[in-house]
Simulated assay, not measured.
Amino acid sequence: MYILLLISLFFILLATLVIMQFHIPRNVIHGIKKRFGNSLNTQNFVTITEENVKEVLCYKKLVPVIEKAFSDFSKCDGGITQPVRVKFPAEKNSSGNYYVMPCSYNGVLVTKLITQFPQNNPRIQSVLTVHDAKEGSMKALLESNLLTAARTAAMSAVATKYLAPTNSKVLAILGAGVQAKSHYFALQSVKEFEEVRIWNRNYLKAETLAQQIGCRACESAEDAVRGADVITTVTGSDTPVLKYEWVTNGAHINCVGGNRPSWQELDPKLMQNAIVYTDTIESAMEESGDIILSKCKIYAEIGDLVNRTKPVKRDQTTVFKSLGMAAMDAAAAKLIYETYTAEQLQF
């Protein structure tokens, strides 16, 4: 009876921890599994937390995976099924939005659920499910804020690999949030920058990030971008923060913010005078204020460069307008899932 009572109390405690979403240390989990075997497997999928994603994330591995996803998406037979993302207001007259992004790619079915509330910190929160595409069984549930930031940065890294000036030395980042930090590490994985500059409307935030990653904070956007070879805009601004006359001819720009039809990060004149690329032309024409309001022409998708179906115009000023794709979520999620589960087997 005493042993049965202890076992009952143990299971009550374990259930309580799960309900409270308490993150049990990995060594404790493996100790429990070793002692009790598979009797504790109450679910057939793994839960991957933000901390788990951080532990296994590697841009040297992620960027090539995203590059292949770009290639496959721009092919007619690339094996990607990606419906247009669903978006609607959280409530009537609400400033918050809810997004649903499904995709079938490379053996997995992935759906990401996103909330975007401007007053929140972080503004964007998301979770992602992974199912096996052949059997339909659920494989994983991921906290996907970090995954989203990483795959977005990796997308910019692929664009930078193909479009940045050959001997790029100076990187400027406008913005100092999560995306700014992820872009710093992702872009450094494809180019060896000698100088990195950070600007944010809140100078203290720029200074804090600069100290964390070892670069220079600038008091104005103009100071940050003058003479830069690569410029990345990752702000929440709805009006342009980057002006045409500040940009060196031949520079490459990753435009990541301004993801609503009425929002802009770049000067319309800059958009009109640059060679503009995007992740998906269909989404860009419907969702990007930088493209819609400037009435600029889109030259190609990044996948066209990877597939060599369009020539690379590296000698001219280029803009990559990034909006995000469910296919990139699927590619990143599969890599994270496989890396994480492989590490678990080593214990």
Rank of each mutant, 00 (worst) to 15 (best):
L5G: 00
S8A: 11
F10D: 08
F10S: 08
I12K: 13
L14K: 12
T16P: 00
V18Y: 10
R26Y: 03
N27A: 06
V28W: 08
H30A: 04
I32Q: 11
V46K: 14
I48T: 05
E51I: 04
E51R: 12
C58S: 15
P64R: 07
S74D: 15
K75A: 02
T81C: 11
T81W: 12
Q82C: 12
V84I: 03
V86I: 13
P89Y: 01
A90M: 15
N93I: 01
S94W: 08
Y99L: 15
P102S: 05
V110E: 09
K112A: 04
I114Y: 03
T115L: 00
F117N: 15
N121K: 14
P122E: 05
R123I: 05
Q125K: 11
L128Q: 07
A133E: 15
K134H: 13
E135G: 02
S137T: 14
A140T: 10
A140D: 13
L141S: 07
N145Y: 03
N145V: 04
L147I: 03
A149S: 11
R151H: 08
R151G: 02
T152P: 10
M155Y: 00
M155Q: 05
A157E: 08
P165F: 01
V170Y: 09
V170T: 14
L174P: 09
A180S: 15
S182R: 02
H183Y: 06
A186E: 06
V190E: 07
K191P: 05
I198P: 09
E207D: 09
E207F: 07
L209D: 03
A210Y: 11
Q211W: 03
A221R: 07
A224G: 10
G236C: 07
Y244W: 09
G250R: 11
H252T: 05
G258D: 06
G258K: 08
W263A: 14
Q264I: 04
L266P: 07
I275G: 01
T280V: 01
G289V: 05
I291S: 06
C296I: 01
C296H: 03
I298S: 02
Y299K: 01
I302M: 11
I302V: 14
I302H: 10
D304V: 00
L305A: 08
V306A: 01
T309Y: 02
D315Q: 14
T317S: 06
F320W: 02
F320E: 06
K321M: 03
K321F: 04
G324F: 04
M325R: 14
A327Y: 13
L335Y: 01
L335F: 03
E338H: 03
A342N: 10
L345M: 12
Q346P: 00
F347H: 15
